[in-house]
Structure formats: C-alpha cells, structure tokens
Design a protein around this nucleic acid. Structure first.
Length: 355
DNA sequence: AACGCGGGGAG
DNA sequence: CTCCCAGCGTT
C-alpha cells in the first residue's frame, strides 16, 4: 500500500540521515524537549544549539528553572529573539512546580495549558518527549505535506491549516508511523530542513519522491502557495548614549511589547524622536550626532541616529520614557551573550568603543 | 482572522 | 536585497 511504503521510506531515511542534535536523547527527556521546542519556535536549529547547551547546563530541570529570576532567564535568552518565549518558559516551569510536582505532565490538556505551548509545541512535546501518537505541523511539515499532496490552500490560511493538520493526523494512523511518532514527526521536519527545502529542493535525493504529487505534476517550485507578505515599516529612532568612565547609561524596557524587559540606552521613535527625547533628556542638545545605522526586524526597518554625550554629572531618571529600571553598562558587559541588551542596543554600545 | 514579536542564515 | 525559520498570545 502507498501509505505504508511511504512511511517506511521516510522512517528508514530518517534513521540514517538525521542530524545529531543535543535534544535528541534516549530515553527522551520531556523537559529537554520543552526547552528545545520553545527555543526552536521560528528559530533555526543551528542558532538554537549553543543556547540549548548553556540553558541545560545552568537549569537542568524544571525546579531549578522555576527558582531562577525572570531577569536571569531573559539574560540567557539574549540574542535568540521573540523574548516572550523566555517569559513563557519560565512561567511554565513555575506552573509545573506548583501544579504537577515539578514533573512535566503527560496529559495533553495539562500540557496545552502551559504558557508558550500551542498546537505545534503540544504535538512536539507529546510525540518527542512522551512518545505519544500526536501529530504536529510546523513550517517544515507544512511545506512537505503541501508538496506530497499538492495542496493549493496557503498554509497560513484557515483552510490550509485545517487541511494540513488533517493530513498530518491521517498519516500518523499508518501503523509504522503510529508505532514511532517521535521518529515520524522528526522525520517529516528533518526532510523539510534537509531535502524538501523552500528553494531548490533536492528531489533527486528525496526518499519519498515516488509518492510526491507535486513532483509528478511539476509543481514543486510553486508549492506551498505563498501568501503575500507585508513590507517592513520604516521607523526612525534616536538613541542617547550617555557615557561616563566608558560605561553607557541604560534603561530596562517594559514587560510588554518589543524587546520586553531588555536593556538599551534611552530612545524614542518617530520623525520627532530627537524632540521627544529632548523633552525628558534636555542634555541631548549638547550631544553630538553619530552616523545613522540601520537595524531590520521582521516587520520594521529602523534607521537609528545615535547621539553621544560624555556625562560628568549624575545620570538622569529614565522612568518618564517608560523604562522600569536603569544602570550603567560597560562595553564588555554589553557585548556578552547574557547582557540582556537587544541586538540593536549592543550594536549601539559597540559604536562607542569603536570610536 | 489579523497582528506583533528578533535575529540570522541562505540564495 | 528577499525569504523564512521545529509558532504563540492577544485583540
């Protein structure tokens, strides 16, 4: 039968071709699975690996993570992006300690109730962490299944999402897949990462090419259907770098929103950023403007003008700008992986020592 | 359903 | 440059 042969082909390929990744352990560790899956949300494997090693060395279990402070947790996340994930993981650890005795629950409803655990992560923790026959759909699986079955609905659409999850559930009913849900799901994702890539997929090396409808129809390049994406919004911003003894005066951003809880030199956005900053920090009029630099996020493209001032007096109060705390940050500290500064702020502080 | 949320690697 | 990555929470 088609389904059985295809399942065998993928599982055989995965057994031989899978990458050696630190969270692929036998026996599986549900906590390690949770950590890796939170880190891997919208983030590539190669980026996550060093963060995962540092994380597991520092917090080897949920109890130790729950006992850490949010600032420590967030500092360990510095550079990974999507910082709300760090907050979610920390809160999840505290919830597991409070409600489940420090052991991750195997019950799907209890898992789904944890912060940061959505449909994908639920399927991943269930199948990879606990060996349960649970389906999952991520960006890789969406691409693989869209091609296998020549699905025309955009994966991001409601209809596309429903179709993909239905296929994923259905495939998992094949006995070989159901007997090895961890390997099956990881095999689908590994195939998407290594063979069934977004551009220039390696169809001549694909273990399931004989069963690929898109390949048979010559439509591999046009599937999955792409959804038109929004352009990044241009944003102007001004940062005031107040320097004393080589250190820079930084504030901690609020818990909500962009770069939540991270540190940066005081800043304002918009065409009137300089004026807005001057209302709270009038000393900016004595500062010298440095050459602008750009920093691109997924949805925003920043053009930042840094203003530099050697400060002899006491540093100003930053709370009127919305910062919840403030401290001096040395260039060495800012450059460290666990500085708690956004990448943009790290760039800015680096411009000072480069002068 | 639509939007906000980082940063980096590949082509 | 563009695209997109082991997505989720909020509105």
């Amino acid at each position: 039968m088609n389904d059985a042969a295809r399942a065998d082909a993928l599982l055989t390929w995965f057994a031989a071709a899978q990458r050696s990744l630190p969270w692929r352990q036998t026996p599986p560790d549900p906590y390690a699975t949770l950590v890796s899956e939170l880190m891997l949300q919208q983030t590539r494997v190669d980026t996550v690996v060093p963060y995962f090693h540092r994380w597991m060395a520092r917090w080897p279990d949920l109890a130790s993570l729950a006992a850490a402070t949010l600032d420590e947790v967030r500092a360990a996340w510095t550079g990974l992006g999507y910082y709300n994930r760090a907050r979610n993981l920390h809160r999840a650890a505290q919830a597991v300690v409070a409600r489940h005795g420090g052991q991750l629950p195997a019950d799907p409803a209890a898992l789904a109730a944890l912060p940061g655990v959505g449909p994908y992560t639920l399927g991943a923790v269930r199948s990879i962490g606990f060996g349960q026959p649970a389906a999952l759909v991520d960006g890789n699986v969406a691409r693989v299944l869209s091609r296998w079955f020549a699905l025309d609905a955009p994966p991001a659409s409601g209809a596309g999402r429903r179709a993909l999850w239905a296929r994923a559930e259905s495939l998992l009913q094949v006995p070989a897949a159901r007997a090895a849900p961890s390997e099956w799901n990881q095999g689908l994702m590994e195939l998407g990462a290594l063979v069934c890539t977004p551009k220039a997929p390696l169809c001549d090396r694909c273990p399931v090419a004989p069963w690929c409808l898109a390949l048979a129809q010559g439509r591999v390049a046009e599937l999955p259907t792409r959804t038109p994406k929004k352009r990044a919004t241009p944003v102007a911003a001004a940062y005031l770098l107040l320097v004393r003894d080589g250190a820079v005066w930084c504030g901690q951003r609020p818990e909500r929103g962009r770069w939540a809880g991270l540190w940066e030199p005081p800043a304002a956005e918009g065409p009137d950023a300089h004026a807005a900053l001057a209302r709270t920090l009038p000393m900016i009029h004595d500062a010298s403007a440095l050459p602008p630099l750009t920093h691109t996020l997924t949805h925003r493209r920043y053009t930042v003008t840094p203003y530099l001032l050697d400060l002899q007096r006491e540093p100003p109060d930053l709370s009127p700008l919305g910062y919840t705390a403030s401290r001096w940050v040395s260039p060495d500290e800012a450059a460290a992986a666990s500085s708690g500064l956004s990448r943009l702020a790290q760039k800015l502080v680096a411009t000072i020592s480069a002068r």
